[in-house]
Write a protein that binds this DNA or RNA. Structure first.
Length: 280
DNA sequence: TTGCAGGGGCATC
DNA sequence: GATGCCCCTGCA
């Protein structure tokens, strides 16, 4: 299936930007992305053109557009950010960035695994977790992300053996809770942002930062603004007076400033801070 | 070799 | 609201 975007799209930049953990690079311009029980192989054909094939569970065109982040008005979002004095100089390098969509549950557990870690380690831990506890997806060599009951069965010790460290307790507790109360995060899609954030933060091990990540990458809430050390550094670099502001207040600040483009702004700030390796 | 920071959250004060 | 701890890795 061929997808043509109305604005430039940089597949590699987007996939490697830290928003996704369940992927492998097949070749220079081709990535294999796990999403639920589907394995999506995406090839960048040209600046605005992607070739996509799906194995495992099938996905229709609309679903793929949503997953790949092509169904949002990126032209409008970038137009807004271009006018911002903090972001305008960064935009040219990141015009190809988009925010993809993941399963809310898988996104929640994945970002719980990311706390005080680093991307290579997170990806290794999660790949090991899938292999240890997940179900193989037929006709692929990929294991699906384990369900809450599969993780509960693996147990806290099993999670520790995967290398998840102190995060194991939280992930185990959260999965037990979801099982006990038969929680299906897909049913939370109708909640407004404040109720959704509040609900997510009820899970043990989920604070503001992870809740905002799940809102942005799992629930496609464009106004979510996760603040981690990199985003903080980027913001402090742009506006030194923000140095004394707490991370939660920065999250509110980003949302107020960029509204429906806050999530995209966060991705741009995150990527630029990491690229420049801003250290303080 | 050691020290430290890496996409946090929580209990305790 | 500040501080220490949680657990493990990669890197200087």
């Amino acid at each position: 299936m061929i997808f043509t975007s109305d604005s430039p799209l940089d597949l590699k930049l987007t996939v490697t930007s830290g928003q996704l953990f369940h992927w492998t690079q097949i070749s220079q311009d081709t990535f294999s992305i796990l999403n639920g029980r589907s394995v999506i192989e995406v090839n960048q054909m040209s600046k605005r053109k992607l070739a996509v094939s799906v194995t495992g569970e099938g996905l229709n065109r609309d679903q793929l557009e949503r997953i790949l982040g092509l169904s949002v008005d990126r032209i409008r979002a970038f137009a807004r950010l271009e006018k911002d004095r903090f972001l305008r100089d960064l935009i040219p390098d990141y015009r190809g960035l988009t925010v993809m969509a993941q399963s809310p549950y898988e996104c929640l557990i994945s970002f719980m695994a990311s706390a005080v870690s680093n991307i290579p380690r997170i990806m290794r831990n999660l790949a090991d977790l899938r292999r240890e506890a997940g179900t193989p997806i037929p006709a692929t060599r990929v294991y699906a992300f384990p369900t809450p009951s599969q993780i509960t069965r693996l147990g806290e010790e099993g999670l520790r053996n995967v290398g998840l460290g102190y995060r194991s307790k939280y992930i185990h507790l959260t999965c037990s809770l979801m099982q006990e109360r038969k929680i299906d995060l897909d049913h939370w899609r109708s909640l407004d942002d404040d109720k959704l954030r509040h609900g997510l933060m009820e899970f043990p091990g989920v604070g503001r930062k992870i809740a905002e990540c799940v809102m942005l990458f799992g629930f496609s809430r464009p106004g979510a603004f996760p603040v981690d050390v990199w985003v903080r550094r980027a913001l402090e670099h742009l506006k030194p007076s923000l140095r004394t502001v707490s991370s939660e207040e920065l999250s509110d600040w980003g949302r107020r400033r960029w509204e429906g483009a806050a999530g995209l702004a966060q991705q741009i700030l995150f990527c630029s801070a990491r690229k420049e390796r801003i250290s303080e």
